[in-house]
Nucleic acid binder design. Sequence first.
DNA 1: AACAACGTACTT
DNA 2: AAGTACGTTGTT
Length: 319
Amino acid sequence: MSASGGSMEGSRAVEDEEAQDSCCGDEDSPVVERRNRSGIISAPLSKSLKRSRALSQYIATCSAAAVASVANANRLAQSSMVAAGVKAHPTGSQHRSQVGYAKLDRGALVSGLLDSPSGLHLAQAAELLRRAGMLLPVSDPSNVSVGGDMETVSASDSLGSVMDFPLLGNGGVGGSFPYHPGLFIMTPAGVFLADGALSHVTGASEHQQTQSEISSAISANGKKKRKRCGLCPPCRRRINCEQCSSCRNRKTGHQICKFRKCEELKKKPAGGLEVRCLIWSIWPLRLSSGAPGVNVSQNPSLSRPPEALNCICVSVLCV
DNA sequence: AACAACGTACTT
DNA sequence: AAGTACGTTGTT
């Protein structure tokens, strides 16, 4: 790149700063004044954002809080389902989509997660799934049938099936992962498992601890303000440029610096809530790496970016 | 579509 | 209460 010019400076500055952050980590290190090439000082954001972690940590170091969050989300999602008049039992098509978890290669997904542009949620999802799979035995075969006759799945059935998501297949000690993909919901606050599937492994205190977080992530009327992701380059930028229109018009505009505007918040919220199903989030990873049984050329819809898709189960939960 | 201004949720 | 910043709406 030999391009130079005034308009490029801003984005280059962001990239430079991002490069710095990514190599040094952004953990709770002492506040050290850092400047990017444009001389912009990095300053702390809110406390909540201080706790952001490097993506790899979401894979390598999983906390018990993740499991607690899952348990709390269970109840919430369950009540949502009840409100929507939806049963937690899988439908026929859902049943078909469950078979075949075990065929998948776990390592490939994990590496894919790490490479994902929306890595945080995917990494969280991966860890969550792995943990849940290790913690729990298959609960109720009549409720969720997994790991059986996967060979009966047709090519057409593979559209939107879970057979491309290895973590759902090899959960660990217990063998096949016992939860229907529709039970997973993703929110800006993380990935959650619905339908009380984990309620028996966590205590009431943990339940209460994260209840407020869940409520924040999924409010009843959907008008809750979204929060910045804290991980994208703009979010990691820590000082206003003081030159963009937002900075210049801060008093009247009430807008964050344009260089700090979260990439996620720039996108339109899907269906009032930014909730996507794990499956669709991981989808492109498997497509790009040659998902077994998936023929993109015969199914053009498969090549759509996951951002444009919302999981069916999410629609049920949020509509 | 980009921008500006305002209302207001949320945080400190 | 004051400051910050997201969501919405009107204007260009």
